[in-house]
């Protein structure tokens, strides 16, 4: 479990990183927190010619509030997000999701940009990005573009990120202060990838649901917005019957795969149960914090 030989570069600017990426064509990997890439290298499952280490790039980490968005530099560590007062105030869903990411040492190294660019469908951050309908900022030789989650995640571990592009920023709209939220997931052990996770945000006005956002982790090759289930809540409200109907609809929408740890049928069941639990818990938080 030693990695094969690779060239190592530690650029200090994004432009330098882009130049290096262009030079290696398809054969370089960006190193952010390394929590997924290093095991892949050590198992020799990834054999890039070069690693381009983003850890010394200036200005790639940090959390800013701009125009009703919270903007995260791609190299912002999950641990920093977990304890950020801005995130706690504006994106409590993200805090809850972050606590479910791996273990403390993993969150201390792992980054928001790395997690989203790696696009493991069982990871929490892609689900949060989908639920909040945020954006990622991508920079390449042809300049910068802003991508919505639906246009970013393609399938397992695959995104529309070009081979010479760097994900530089993640932008999440600040949550409505009166909305309720919950991230429910089921994993075999604490800190494991979710078999299924559900991110939920609801806003309401009495029994009326003015807005519902539901997204999955682990229930398919990409994070899925459960729009049909959201519509049930938005049209029928937040009573028991509506929540159960939305949860049942969620289980119908997803197309999970079977693997060693869970069958597709079990994942569909988890989608239903966790959607129901997430919405119910979100409802208890309605009305401001």
């Amino acid at each position: 479990m030693k990695p094969p030989k690779f060239d190592y570069h530690a650029p200090t600017t994004v432009d330098e990183a882009i130049t290096l990426l262009s030079r290696y064509g398809d054969d370089a990997k960006l190193l952010a927190g390394g929590q997924s890439l290093m095991p892949l290298l050590n198992f020799r499952l990834a054999r890039p010619a070069a690693l381009i280490d983003l850890n010394r790039v200036e200005g790639l980490a940090g959390i800013r509030e701009v125009d009703g968005q919270v903007r995260f530099g791609a190299m912002t560590r999950q641990r920093a997000i977990e304890f950020s007062p801005v995130v706690a105030r504006r994106l409590p869903l993200l805090v809850e999701a972050t606590k479910l990411v791996g273990h403390l040492p993993i969150r201390s190294r792992g980054t928001i940009g790395g997690s989203i660019a790696h696009a493991d469908p069982a990871a929490e951050y892609p689900a949060v990005l989908a639920a909040l309908d945020g954006e990622v900022v991508v920079r390449g030789p042809r300049g910068e573009r802003v991508v919505k989650p639906a246009d970013f995640f393609q399938t397992y571990l695959t995104t529309t990120l070009g081979r010479d592009e760097v994900l530089t920023e993640v932008r999440l709209p600040a949550m409505d202060g009166k909305a309720g939220w919950a991230f429910e997931e089921f994993s075999r052990r604490h800190g494991d990838f979710a078999l299924v996770g559900i991110a939920a945000i609801v806003a309401g006005d009495g029994a009326r649901c003015t807005m519902a956002r539901l997204a999955t982790a682990g229930a398919g090759p990409v994070p899925v917005r459960l729009r049909a289930a959201e519509r049930i809540l938005e049209s029928q409200g937040l009573g028991d019957a509506a929540i159960e109907a939305a949860a049942a609809r969620a289980a119908e929408i997803v197309e999970p795969d079977s693997d060693l740890h869970a069958s597709a049928a079990y994942r569909k069941n988890l989608t239903r149960v966790l959607t129901e639990r997430a919405v119910r818990r979100a409802v208890t938080r309605l009305g401001g914090r």
């Binding site: 095991p39 198992f43 075999r188 052990r189 604490h190 800190g191 494991d192 990838f193 060693l260 740890h261």
Partner: peptide, 14 residues
Amino acid sequence: TGTLLDYLVPMATD
């Protein structure tokens, strides 16, 4: 189950 991602040993939290 060729890695500890797939072979699950109990942890303190279990």
